[in-house]
Nucleic acid binder design. Sequence first.
DNA 1: CGTCTGCTTGATCAGGGTCAACTCAGGTGG
DNA 2: CCACCTGAGTTGACCCTGATCAAGCAGACG
Lengths: 283, 283
Amino acid sequence: MLSTQTSEIRPASTALQSSMEAGRQRQGRLWSNLKEVCDILHIPAASSIANEELLFQHVQFKTGQRIHTIGQPFDTLYIVNSGFLKTVLIDEYGNEQVLSFPMKGDLLGVDGIHTRHYSSEAVALSDCDLILLPFKKLTALGRIHLELENMMYGVMSRELVREQAMIGMLGALSAEARVARFLVALAERFAQMGYSSKLFNLRMTRHEIGSYLGLTLETVSRTLSAFNEIGLISVDQRTIGIKDPEALKTLRRLPPSRTRGKTATARGKGGVPEPSGQLLAAL
Amino acid sequence: MLSTQTSEIRPASTALQSSMEAGRQRQGRLWSNLKEVCDILHIPAASSIANEELLFQHVQFKTGQRIHTIGQPFDTLYIVNSGFLKTVLIDEYGNEQVLSFPMKGDLLGVDGIHTRHYSSEAVALSDCDLILLPFKKLTALGRIHLELENMMYGVMSRELVREQAMIGMLGALSAEARVARFLVALAERFAQMGYSSKLFNLRMTRHEIGSYLGLTLETVSRTLSAFNEIGLISVDQRTIGIKDPEALKTLRRLPPSRTRGKTATARGKGGVPEPSGQLLAAL
DNA sequence: CGTCTGCTTGATCAGGGTCAACTCAGGTGG
DNA sequence: CCACCTGAGTTGACCCTGATCAAGCAGACG
């Protein structure tokens, strides 16, 4: 049965060509069972089923390689086991719009389910190890292993919530607040992965950060410099040191109005001081 | 079996109180079978199973009523059968951020799956008829009726793609382009529902549109006025007439740069004229 | 050693936010 | 029936945030 299952998993032959064969030899572990998959996704797997005949293949990608491209026929999801990536949309002029920076525990390719074609492009920002989840296989198995199905719903919902928060941020926050929250979110992700949340390396360029946050690279650069001068963070190229996470977390938006309804206005005026921040007046 | 299934569907007792009992009497049809549900969602249901014992209850909401609130325990999804709604996030100051304007065929509540609590709030902008999909029941049925499960994945993926497009728009487009695309998207939705795509009523305020698009109500108002003067549309209060859909669709962003890579730049310069638009110079 | 890409920083400018005044439609109550 | 009120929408004046343009620097690489 194992061989039957696996034989149909061509190692992403459409998406990639090189490094596939290399992948088979490299690294000690090239297959994961269901429990390991759930662990990576932070899903409380009913570990009862330590199903060893149910294995998912790993594939390695090198920095710069594309996992999938826009319009490519969809047939598999990917879980990030290690490494860093970006997903992008490309508009009618070829401009990139960064959508996310997936890292360990994130699911890739969900946008392809609907139309059976990926609607975004995923690129490795570092060498990556991904777990293949052939969608057909996945849904078939979902009917047998309930936790798998729940996992799917959970992860997709999580992704959706994350994007909603992103929309909220793009729609309402100032440039500094966006950068601040970006850094905080990164730090928390690193902590969650067991790395330091105080000192880490950015895997993406200022340009990519800017695209992600709806800003220009200059604004990102300037904002980081400003944070640095004020002592919120330390910046050295791609190395970021978080010095005052609380201040970053609570850094307020400049336009403290926009969408507020009457109740909101009342609440805001009465309760919160409303720092009326200049660049960083909130300190 | 029917009674068993249905008895546990308390008509959203937590979310609402009034108009529930009224709902039972009102309207001829208060239950839908699987095929009807798939039709509403535009999912190609393997209609083979015209399962009549598998019914989903409808519930009516009146203008202004809340379907669910942030933090409320999640247990059911909703499909919009008729009417218009908004979903919003509420930040730490009580400011609303509009996330979407669901209408017929849209799914509500997916954001609650992950944490088992709704992370957004849904409000009826008009009288609405919603179909209840108790989540437990749904997943249980998904294992029996494959099309139901596929429907779920498909709709969630569709929602995700929609939000990605939204992020792209907020991150890269100018105010006019956002408003233009908003109108086009609305028109297409109306057409899809069988209404006129040339003349329709906005169900939301300028304020809500602005929040949705990351703009102020003043900017929305001004932009609509500008479109009106140029003859792209006609505006009379909430009534919008689409006069030049093509121009609206292709209205270009003002900042034609930002995220472009080198290939993009090359492509852009070589191929596309790049209108360099002022407010509406693209005409 | 020259080139390229990423990053920083400065000067300038404008898109769109803010504040404010005014109109209009609908609802209320005397 | 009309005065009044409230909330939505429009429009104008002003100004600030962040985009644009430009110059200079440092590290990577052939």
